[in-house]
C-alpha cells in the first residue's frame, strides 16, 4: 500500500512535468493537456502520504536485459557518460528499488516506461526529481553530484532507446538443440546431404556465421531464397545503374533459372529479370536480354528454383529439429 502511494507520487510528478513539457512544444490547443498522455487512471489518484521503509522487492531486481552495446552506439550518447551513469545508478542503490536495468520492481516504478524519462533531453527533468527529497532515502535528497545525476540521466535515456529500438536487440544463446540428433537428421530424413556436404560446401560454416545467421541461412537456403521471388537481380550494373548488364549471368547452386519456350518451339534458358502475368524478361546464358509478351498463353515459362527443397522441408520441420540441425552446423568449425 505504502509503496503504491510512493509510485503515485512519482507518477503524479512525472505527469505534471510531462504535461508542462508537452504544452511547451504544442501549438496552443484549447484543451485538457493531461488527456494527451494516457495514464493508469482512477484508483491511483490518492493523496500522497509520507513514505515508509519499503519491503525488499520480490521481482525485477535480478533483471539482466538492458540496453545493448548497439543501443549505446546508435543512441548517439557519450559511451563514457553511459558507463559512468551505470555505475552511479548501481552505487547509489537505485536498482534495488527500480530494478537492475531500470525496468521497475513491485515496489518502485519502471523508469524506462516513464514519460518523464522520455521527455528528458539532458537531465533537466530527471535531475529535478533527483534533486528533491527522495522517499527511498526517508525523504532526504540523494547524495549525488550534479555530474552523477547527469550521467544517470544519460544512462536512463539509453535504456529507453534500447527498449524502443528493436534493431539494437541482441539474440540470446539460440543454440538449444542436440547436435547428434541434428547430424542424424542432416544425413537421414532431412535429406540435407543429398545436396550438401559438411566437408564440401558447408565446411567450416560454423565459424563463418553467428548461430542466428546460420540458422536463418540454412532454413531459407540463403539470402536470395525468397521462394517464388528473388527475381530482378543482376539486370543493371554499377555506373549509377544506367548500363544494362550484358555479361553472362553467374549461376550458383542457389540461382533461380527459367526455361522459356516460344510457340514455334524455340527454347531459351536464363536468369529471370521480371516474370509476371503479362510478360517475361530474362538474360540468357550469354547475357543477352530478352522480353516476351505472354498474354496469349505463350511463351511457356518454367521456373527452376534449386531452393524448393528448403521450402518443402519447412512444411513438416519441427522447431526441435530446426534447433538440432543448427546445433550440429554450429559444430562445423
Amino acid at each position: 500500500m505504502k509503496s503504491r502511494k510512493y509510485a503515485v507520487l512519482l507518477s503524479a510528478a512525472a505527469l505534471a512535468i510531462a504535461a508542462i513539457a508537452l504544452r511547451a512544444q504544442t501549438p496552443a490547443p484549447p484543451q485538457n493537456q493531461t488527456e494527451a498522455r494516457p495514464q493508469i487512471p482512477a484508483s491511483t489518484a490518492e493523496t500522497p502520504a509520507p513514505p515508509a521503509p519499503n519491503p525488499p522487492p520480490t521481482v525485477g531486481t535480478n533483471a539482466t536485459i538492458g540496453a545493448t552495446p548497439a543501443a549505446v552506439r546508435q543512441s548517439g550518447e557519450d559511451p563514457a557518460a553511459v558507463a559512468r551513469g551505470a555505475e552511479a545508478y548501481a552505487t547509489a542503490g537505485c536498482g534495488s528499488c527500480h530494478g537492475a536495468t531500470g525496468k521497475g520492481t513491485d515496489i518502485a516504478p519502471d523508469l524506462v516506461r516513464s514519460p518523464l524519462v522520455e521527455d528528458d533531453t539532458k537531465g533537466e527533468l530527471i535531475g529535478a526529481v533527483l534533486g528533491q527529497p527522495h522517499p527511498k532515502n526517508g525523504g532526504t535528497k540523494p547524495s549525488l553530484t550534479d555530474q552523477q545525476i547527469s550521467d544517470i540521466a544519460t544512462w536512463l535515456r539509453v535504456q529507453v532507446y534500447g527498449a524502443a529500438m528493436r534493431d539494437t536487440y541482441q539474440y540470446l544463446n539460440i543454440v538449444v538443440g542436440d547436435p547428434q540428433k541434428g547430424e542424424a537428421l542432416f544425413n537421414g530424413s532431412g535429406k540435407c546431404n543429398s545436396c550438401h556436404s559438411v566437408t564440401g560446401d558447408l565446411a567450416g560454416i560454423g565459424s563463418k556465421y553467428q548461430p542466428p545467421q546460420l540458422q536463418s541461412l540454412w532454413i531459407s537456403g540463403g539470402a536470395n531464397a525468397r521462394f517464388g521471388r528473388g527475381f530482378g537481380r543482376g539486370l543493371l550494373t554499377g555506373n549509377g545503374g544506367m548500363l544494362a548488364d550484358t555479361s553472362p549471368p553467374e549461376i550458383t547452386p542457389s540461382t533461380i533459372t527459367i526455361t522459356v519456350t516460344l510457340a514455334d518451339g524455340q527454347k531459351f534458358t536464363g536468369v529471370p529479370v521480371t516474370y509476371n502475368d503479362f510478360y517475361v524478361a530474362f538474360r540468357d546464358m550469354s547475357g543477352a536480354y530478352h522480353s516476351f509478351d505472354r498474354r496469349g498463353g505463350w511463351p511457356k515459362v518454367e521456373v527452376h528454383n534449386p531452393l524448393q527443397p528448403h521450402w518443402d522441408l519447412l512444411k513438416h520441420l519441427t522447431d526441435d529439429e530446426m534447433h538440432d540441425v543448427t546445433a550440429y552446423l554450429v559444430t562445423l568449425k
Binding site: I65, K103, R113, Y171, L172
Partner: peptide, 10 residues
C-alpha cells in the same frame, strides 16, 4: 526469437 527473458520485458 525471444530476446528479453526478464520478468518485465519491454
Amino acid at each position: 526469437y525471444l530476446t528479453d527473458t526478464d520478468e518485465h520485458p519491454e
